[in-house]
Simulated scan of single mutants.
Amino acid sequence: MLVSHYFELAEHVTGGISESVAHQRKMLDRLDVSYTTRQTLDADVMHFNLMGPRSVWYAKRARSKGIPVVANTHVTAEDFGDSFRFTNALAKPLKPYLRWAYGHADALVCPSEYNRGLIEGYADVPTTVVSNGVDTEKLEGFESLEDEYRERYDLSEPTVFLVGHVIKRKGLETFVELARTRPDVDFAWFGPLDLSLKGRETTALIENAPENCTFTGFVDDIRGAFAAGDVFCFPTHEENEGIALLEAMAAGKPVVVRDIETFSWLEDGEDCLKVSPEPGGSDVEAFAAALDELADAGRRRTLGSAAADRAEAFSLDAVAGRYRDLYDEVIAE
């Protein structure tokens, strides 16, 4: 079997999509599935990770020749807004484009049940849920970086942290205001700032954040984030899955998440704390209450240990076989 595993705009797209592609290729290596990163009609399966115009063009050609087409549904109109400058304006026309683009696949790979629910309203194409997975090898030895990264960013235990691109959709305003209500606690957001790509509101939130709220920008070794951080706080409003969340759990960090459908698989009080503001209440107050519960080191250890156990089901080894099964299925059909 040869898979054409193509990632359009690979040199420009970073963050979760890029991580997912890297994970997929690691899984294919472990499965001993032959693949090329080029678009080629000599493959048994064409697998696209971003359905841009070039991918759609090849998908059309592949299907005309009887080559099955698989596509990942990393992008939805729902999670495109409140990301970078102009994305809100583009989110509306993006949906009909994605309906058209995803309709050129024989099978769609969704990272979560929530994402699948959205995608089933986009295209009449069979869907399969396959997690983006978590690469535990990438995290190995993160504990050894604790002192270095705490000193580098002047962080003290317990540090509340987040990992990923700094964008409004991921709960930026809540994160900043949480830091403002807890001036004796350090907050750190590890990830690219890209201020030139941000809107004025996002830029203002970052520039006017309190002193105890650090935006590190790009970090050369992401293990340092999981070494220096103690409580992973993820107030995102919309997410297809959340690789950084899985990484934090695999690292044994207690996680606090907004109670949204994406995270329905998590058990509140068991492997995470879920935050849902009371009607008319403030989400900042609700998140602050959850963080106060985790001021106790013993509670952090218990919740973090349960999170690590739950994350094992998302390891690359646990997920990989689903891709082989999917390829076999589309080829047989």
Rank of each mutant, 00 (worst) to 15 (best):
N72Y: 08
D283K: 04
V257S: 02
L245Y: 04
F7Y: 09
I67V: 08
A89L: 15
F314H: 10
A289E: 15
H165D: 06
A288E: 15
F226S: 07
G133L: 01
Y102R: 14
L294V: 04
G121W: 02
I260A: 01
E151M: 11
F190Y: 12
F232T: 00
A250G: 11
D283V: 12
L266T: 03
L162E: 04
V255E: 12
W189R: 09
A123Y: 07
G16T: 02
R310A: 14
D317P: 13
I260L: 13
A307Y: 04
T214C: 08
T216I: 15
D124V: 03
Y323F: 14
N72P: 00
S131W: 08
S64M: 10
P126N: 12
L145V: 06
N115D: 03
E8Y: 02
N49D: 12
V3M: 13
G191Q: 05
T136P: 11
D296T: 00
E207H: 08
Y58T: 10
L2H: 03
A43G: 07
L108C: 09
R63M: 08
P68T: 09
K60F: 07
A307Q: 05
P183W: 14
E157H: 02
C272L: 03
L155D: 08
R300C: 03
D124N: 12
D186A: 11
V33D: 04
S156A: 13
D184W: 06
I243L: 07
